[in-house]
Design a protein around this nucleic acid. Structure first.
Lengths: 148, 148
DNA sequence: TATTGTTATACTCTATAACTATA
DNA sequence: TATAGTTATAGAGTATAACAATA
């Protein structure tokens, strides 16, 4: 849906964020993976963890994570193995192939950022970052009814 | 899904945009309407137009607009009438009640923006706006496959 | 035959709850 | 009984195609 009153800063930030998000998602898809699967690999890159921990870190429901890991595992990009200490748990780990994919993705995201922010100097990019960091987005509950 | 590498400016802008969008949508819902319906009223505020024009302006499919207008009309916030010059067309118009709703919404959005950007001075808000305006988001086609 | 608005259908996402196997 | 992971189901949202009325 196109912007109706981009003269409001809130709308401007929302719409630019959405378009930026679309460009980044396209970059994440460079290896033919779903962006969500790539985000999962990114989470796993620093180290292995249980599915429950991974779901919590990504703020998604554990049941949604199942399909993601099925796909990643079938493509050889991540592995699940039982935790010997507690056989209910799965330890999830990124594979070498998964890490290699992340390398390609990182290059594509870098390219996307050069396109997105290429008209800004390094200093201006740093300034934009610091201003965005000061936007207050701590989700106080502002649900006002809505929908029908 | 939470941020995996907010150290990249593209991710930061995406995630701040998403959270800002959520806060703005909550404000749009202040009158109990679906945000999409409020956006439609905003488009109609400057003047009446046909459904086809309205759909084009909002960049949505005409068929999706039908349900929105049904709801707005049943709530007395907008009206459809046949164009006498071309009886295929519907002229869509906001009502006084619809304009009144927009007044309440505008106040709520103003409040949301004060929360979001209250830590920034007026000058900093203007700076943020000008930097966002220079982010390049003209959708060149970057579809790289993705999904499965 | 082309266009406007409408309806119907299908596909994706997401949220939730029920189920299994372990503890 | 409680927890980790899985499966199944339902709902919202969206995209597409077929349709009726009018040009």
């Amino acid at each position: 849906m196109a912007a109706p009153s981009t003269d409001r800063l809130g709308f401007l930030l929302s719409f630019r964020g959405e378009l930026t998000s679309a460009r980044i998602r396209a970059a994440l898809g460079v290896a033919g993976l779903h962006p969500r699967n790539v985000m999962t690999l990114m989470r796993l890159a620093p180290g292995a963890m249980s599915q429950r921990e991974l779901a919590a870190a990504m703020e998604i429901d554990p049941s949604q994570l199942v399909a993601v890991l099925n796909e990643l595992e079938s493509e050889g990009l991540a592995e699940r193995r039982r935790d010997p200490a507690d056989r209910r748990r799965h330890i999830v780990e990124i594979t070498e192939a998964g890490a290699a994919v992340l390398g390609r993705v990182d290059a594509a995201v870098g390219e996307a950022e050069r396109e997105l922010f290429g008209d800004l100097t390094e200093a201006e990019q740093a300034l934009l970052r610091s201003l965005l960091d000061r936007v207050v987005v701590d989700a106080a509950d502002h649900d006002c009814g809505g929908a029908e």
